[in-house]
Write a protein that binds this DNA or RNA. Structure first.
Lengths: 213, 213
DNA sequence: AATTTCCTACCTGTTTTCCGGTAGTTTCGG
DNA sequence: CCGAAACTACCGGAAAACAGGTAGGAAATT
């Protein structure tokens, strides 16, 4: 039988929400509250010693950024699926939580039945979103797809090598070019990105997906 | 009535798959094939002049990277929802396609009814995945969450400023520190990341979510 | 009380980047 | 065939980063 109650932990600094969620989930069949926490620290301490199947995580806790917390939790309790619960509806925030290993993302205005559905799905090992989040993610606002510099083949090639920590001379010898040529490409890259130095250029490039893992 | 047939474009360099998809979707009620393309260039040309509601996009076309293509398509045809169709099942690839504005992601082994469901959902403005993709996304492999350096408050602060393109002297005056102190922090950061220079450090930091947009 | 960690600050010297140009060749589309 | 990109290559000088140290004081932990 796979039908033991799903153990749920909740972390939210808003006592009202915390209590509301607790009441709601206690009433749901097949779910049990393993613990409720008002801060990231409490939550981490609990997960170090105890188990939860699902963690409903408010990503705006006072003592820790949601991204950091998510990462830490995945380290100390890899079996716990994290459902991010948030008021933030920006695409970038959602993507970053996923990157940090969240198994789902819900806006706080989620309806009770949707919340329960998402918990069930997450417990089945599926990525899950509330409908509002799916709508946000499917419709990137025009402004969020910002103008990205048009790079030539050579420039992309060199950008990757720069991002990899290679120096101009390294790159020159790898590509059988003059270091001065590589310098020129680097200059053009900086100009296209409008960056004063590689640090900010690489940041932009990675954020815009020009550089893969 | 909202019940005109969904106009679907397909881009895939594998003729067999292309034809298979075409046949399959022509047979589906409420769907029409607007065009089939074997290369990114053809596909772009078509979308510049004609409309499609949904684009099934193989992200491994010979003449363009899926990420670039996705971005370009979103620029020239923002109303077209892109469903990525791929053999790649890496989390990072999926996340990056989403970042570039894809409305969904399907593995090529997707079943016909699942494909049709996903097209319908995408057309309704919802983010959509095949079940296999949802499973992959919900279960980040331990190796993908790689060991991330433990940074102190000051170090994080300075890391952000470096990523923003600030120089050592800039940072020093912003934080009312000696430039030499900032240099020390920078050195410690480089060491913690194991990077030879800021370019590769910033790349790692952004990829690991230490630096937000 | 002792240890560790963090933050601060310094020194010297080398390497690399950054900035501002110029310019010849190839390649590709109109 | 002409123009526009793209790729290649160069120069000189200023600014910044990088490397490998040392070191004192504060705060937290043991």
């Amino acid at each position: 039988m796979s039908s033991q109650a799903i153990q749920i932990a909740i972390a939210d600094d808003h006592p009202l929400i915390l209590e509301g969620l607790q009441k709601l989930l206690e009433a749901a069949p097949g779910m049990e509250i393993a613990g409720c926490f008002g801060s990231g620290r409490e939550c981490l301490e609990f997960l170090q010693s105890s188990h939860a199947d699902i963690l409903l995580l408010d990503i705006a806790l006072p003592d820790a950024s949601g991204l950091d917390l998510c990462r830490e939790i995945r380290n100390i309790a890899p079996a716990t699926r994290i459902l991010a619960l948030s008021n933030h509806s920006e695409r970038s925030m959602i993507l970053q939580m996923l990157q940090q290993g969240a198994s789902g993302y819900l806006l706080k205005n989620v309806a009770a039945d949707e919340l329960i559905r998402c918990i069930r799905e997450a417990h089945e090992g599926l990525l899950t979103f509330s409908k509002a989040v799916r709508e946000i993610m499917a419709k990137p606002s025009a402004t969020e797809l910002r103008d990205m510099p048009q790079l030539t083949r050579r420039e992309k090639e060199i950008l990757l090598l720069i991002a990899d920590g290679k120096t101009t001379t390294d790159i020159a010898s790898m590509l059988h070019l003059s270091p001065l040529t590589v310098e020129t490409h680097r200059k053009n890259l900086l100009q296209k990105f409008g960056s004063p130095n590689v640090a900010s250029m690489i940041r932009l490039a990675v954020q815009q997906g020009l550089i893969q893992s």
